[in-house]
């Protein structure tokens, strides 16, 4: 089942004061997110990630294109009950306590009064905020606010959760807890659509990712598919001949791995056979050959051209 579907979604923002002209923040984005998956939306600052989230949540209106969530058009008022949202760098009503804020959002989300208190307690516990439940939000640290933001996004048990930079402001323990929470939500069948520019977070938990660059979709797919595409290079671990001097070119290109002289070289696939012939002629010994896989970072930088100094979307 498709949980989120965007078709040719486009957004232009007017710029200028007197003579307004459109600036394209998102250009014909088409994507589908399956129910129950964790979908990473990658892109550098200004790539159009937040604009996409705002479009899906009807905070801004599309210039062109359509989107559906859980099969309903995004303008459908019934949809909001099934959606949770954490904005980037969230700010909440600082005159409320954490508990009051969650109770307020739970009420708005339509959680029944009978179960509201229990649901708030569960959300606070999941985010490790139980001991801070009655702390005023104006006294909360950035990391605590992020956790409260996540708690309010899930307090009403939504089917789809949109998270804009959910790891931002969290320490390593907090990041791990959020990753665990996302995996736990996924296990319960919740669809998670989260934007990030921290590739390692996406690499660890995403089923699929999309890469956005200057408002355009540059690539999308399952992580294993994106990462499985072999790099045209092979890692060779080898041992030089003990009775012959090592050629200078080899010595400078290889990395010494151990005291006994074991070395590591990265060789272009097309050069591999010639390289192995040369090793045999030298009298060296081959220890291992490993085709190299791409990391998500390499995929990202391959798909994303260098950032334009003029910036991009919101």
């Amino acid at each position: 089942m498709i949980a989120i579907e965007c078709t040719q979604l486009t957004k232009d923002y007017p710029v200028g004061f007197w003579r307004q002209r459109p600036r394209r923040a998102l250009d014909q984005l088409s994507l589908q997110v399956e129910a129950g998956e964790i979908f990473g939306f990658l892109g550098h600052n200004g790539a159009g990630k937040t604009t996409t989230l705002k479009l899906l949540l009807r905070l801004v209106y599309p210039t062109a294109g359509t989107a559906r969530i859980l099969g309903k058009p995004i303008g459908d008022p019934r949809l909001a009950r099934q959606i949770g949202y954490l904005p980037e760098a969230p700010y909440f009503y600082d005159y409320l306590t954490c508990r009051e804020l969650l109770a307020y959002y739970a009420e708005l989300a339509g959680v029944a009064p009978a179960t509201r208190e229990a649901d708030v307690r569960v959300a606070l516990r999941r985010l490790g905020m139980e001991s801070f439940a009655d702390l005023s939000l104006r006294k909360c640290s950035k990391g605590m606010l992020q956790r409260v933001g996540l708690a309010q996004a899930i307090v009403h048990r939504p089917a789809v959760v949109f998270l804009d930079e959910p790891m931002s402001g969290l320490d390593p323990i907090g990041r791990r807890e959020v990753r665990d929470l996302m995996l736990e939500l996924k296990a319960q069948g919740t669809t998670i659509f989260f934007s990030t520019h921290i590739l390692s977070d996406a690499e660890q938990i995403c089923d699929r990712v999309a890469i956005l660059q200057q408002g355009c979709l540059r690539g999308m797919g399952r992580l294993e598919e994106l990462l499985a595409e072999p790099r045209p290079e092979v890692e060779v671990v080898w041992m030089p001949a003990s009775n012959r001097p090592l050629p200078e070119a080899w010595a400078s290109a290889a990395q010494l791995l151990s005291q006994n002289g074991q070395r590591r070289s990265v060789v272009a696939s097309c050069e591999l056979w010639n390289w192995l012939d040369a090793l045999r002629a030298h009298g060296g010994r081959l220890i291992s050959l490993t085709p190299l896989r791409r990391s998500l970072e390499e995929v990202y930088f391959q798909d994303a051209p260098p950032k334009d100094a003029s910036g991009g979307a919101a």
Binding site: K54, L57, R58, L59, P77, R78, A80, R81, I83, G84, Y85, L86, P87, A89, P90, Y91, F92, Y93, Y105, L108, A109, G110, G149, Q152, F162
Partner: peptide, 11 residues
Amino acid sequence: RTLYTLLAHPV
């Protein structure tokens, strides 16, 4: 931006 979170709810 408190309005963003609010309007993401059924309001």
